[in-house]
Amino acid sequence: MDSVFLYSGLYLAFLMIFPLYRALRGPTVVDRMLGVNAIGSKTVVLLILIGLIFNRVDMFVDIALAYAMLNFIAVLAASRYFHKRKGLYDELQ
């Protein structure tokens, strides 16, 4: 069973490249936030997978919970920040 977790963890890490590409290339700032949010939600699952591989699940569940909270707050703060600033538009034109 451990190899299943290892390979699914590696596959999940490989899956993170697409939102990373979207975060790098995304025309607007909100695209970048979208990519960061997608990577964050994948990291939460990856953390629990790593916890299972290392047989220390209760430690890694707490880390995953904290990471999910931080991801959520970061996205909220970033989207709140871009309400005011009009910087969003420079990339479009």
């Binding site: 607007t28 909100v30 949010n37 939600s41 709140r80 969003l88 479009l92």
Partner: peptide
């Protein structure tokens, strides 16, 4: 995750709409 992911998506959409995208 069920509670926060849709809320975060909504916050992003709100930022996009408010900025006039």
């Amino acid at each position: 995750v069920f509670l926060t992911s849709p809320t975060a998506t909504h916050a992003i959409v709100d930022a996009g709409v408010r900025a006039g995208l």
